[in-house]
């Protein structure tokens, strides 16, 4: 189910997802290996490298798990209670207060892995999936 849709202008060549209350000294530094993968991670923050564009990148937050075939950028654990979705080089903005404040499973997918063409990013929180409110065609936004 779609919980949030946030259009973001990438800034400093990236989109940042995570908790700005996490220690800034732990935020990703963008090693060469991380840049090669296109994703830099820390316990509370995930940066996605995107080439310069004047277009929006749409970031969706969903419960449940991604569909098969989606390009997975990150599959792991994120320590987050207040999720911010921003471009780089800023302080917190566009926040979603999550019901849990802890490390939680997160899968991040995108419309592709080519940084020159990433325009749609989805953060999936599988633990928030509600069996009593399954997605149907009416929710297939």
């Amino acid at each position: 189910m779609l919980l949030l849709r946030q259009p973001v202008r990438p800034s400093h060549g990236q989109v940042c997802l995570g908790d700005y209350k996490s220690d800034p000294d732990t935020w990703p530094e963008w090693t060469d290996a991380e840049f090669e993968r296109g994703v830099a991670t820390s316990p509370g923050m995930i940066f996605i490298s995107i080439d310069d564009t004047s277009e929006f990148v749409i970031v969706d937050v969903r419960d449940g798990t991604p569909s098969t075939g989606e390009a997975v950028l990150f599959d792991g654990v994120l320590d987050v209670s207040t999720l911010s979705v921003t471009g780089g080089g800023t302080t917190t903005a566009q926040s979603l207060l999550l019901p849990d404040s802890r490390e939680q499973k997160v899968t991040i997918t995108a419309n592709g892995t080519d940084r020159s063409n990433i325009r749609h990013v989805t953060i999936h929180f599988p633990e928030y999936a509600d069996p009593d409110m399954p997605d149907g065609a009416w929710m297939n936004l």
């Binding site: 800034s11 400093h12 060549g13 990236q14 940042c16 800034p24 935020w27 990703p28 530094e29 963008w30 060469d32 840049f35 830099a40 940066f47 490298s49 080439d51 310069d52 471009g87 780089g88 080089g89 800023t90 302080t91 940084r115």
Partner: peptide, 12 residues
Amino acid sequence: TIEQNRQGGAVG
């Protein structure tokens, strides 16, 4: 681009 990425982190 990698420098731009790093700058974003440094500035933020």
